[in-house]
Design a protein around this nucleic acid. Structure first.
Length: 256
DNA sequence: ATGGTTGCTTAGCAA
């Protein structure tokens, strides 16, 4: 089973790229983030014609997540449904081919100490609670998406320079570590130990061209799946050419 | 260089 995850930064602008990506990689699952469309505008027909089932959770202008699956999904959960009144579309969970696939677009946080930063911390806390109360580290499960955190110094070009920002502040790194300690492995690190392998580059100042990026998009897997992960990669080719997203897709393959 | 770019929506925000 091949699983991919991609923050497309507007599905309308990236539709042709997304369809070409499906043709090139033929993933069994593709998790998408930052759709920036309501569900009625989401181009479901195009993906269905390409052979995928569409589960989406969108909203106007901001956020939005979707999971495309070759096989029909079950146990669809749209939103965290934890009693918190939250209009932001950032969470989707489906079961497909015996695997629980959770697609997330974690809040960016804007600035350390801001209201959005508090929301980011609280959102991570809600995600952790979801795993603890509704999932098991012993079940086959992947948690994919844009986590808006770099894990360690290998995941960004200037760790000292990023230390006090929302993407690398010690508190948010510990917060993500608290989630993964539940029982999740970073599939990319199972196969690559080197630094300088990034999934996001700022649109500004030619960051991609200069190699100035961060790795903030991950496919985490529970032990039953991590033990069967045969490959993981970042498709940085997708950051090149006309009208790229600022994120590259990440992929993981499992032997079953 | 307190800069720079992109997308949504239409001047300002979010990333």
């Amino acid at each position: 089973m091949k699983i991919a995850s991609w923050n497309v930064n507007s599905i309308r602008v990236r539709l042709e790229r997304a369809l070409a990506f499906l043709e090139r990689h033929e993933p069994d699952v593709l998790c998408l983030q930052e759709l920036k469309v309501t569900d009625d505008i989401f181009p479901a027909q195009d993906f269905e014609s390409a052979g995928y089932n569409v589960t989406r959770h969108g909203q106007k202008t901001y956020n939005g997540v979707a999971v495309l699956t070759r096989k029909a999904p079950s146990e669809v959960q749209i939103g965290l449904n934890d009693g918190v009144d939250d209009p932001q579309a950032r969470f989707l969970s489906v079961d497909v081919e015996g695997v629980r696939v959770i697609c997330v677009y974690v809040p960016n946080g804007q600035a350390v100490g801001s209201d959005k930063w508090q929301y980011k911390l609280a959102w991570y806390s809600r995600l952790k609670r979801h795993l603890e109360t509704r999932c098991s580290p012993d079940q086959p499960l992947v948690l994919c998406g844009d986590f808006n955190v770099a894990i360690d110094e290998r995941d960004l070009y200037d760790p000292a320079g990023w230390e006090d920002t929302v993407l690398y502040h010690p508190e948010i790194r510990e917060t993500l570590a608290g989630v993964t300690r539940w029982g999740l492995k970073d599939t990319f690190r199972l196969h690559h130990q080197d630094g300088g392998r990034y999934s996001w580059w700022d649109y500004r100042a030619g960051a991609f061209h200069k190699g100035l990026g961060l790795r903030i998009d991950f496919i985490f897997a529970t032990e039953p799946l991590a033990g069967r992960c045969t490959d993981a990669s970042i498709d940085r080719e997708e950051r090149k050419g006309k009208q790229p997203s600022d994120h590259a897709p990440v992929l993981a393959t499992f032997d079953f």
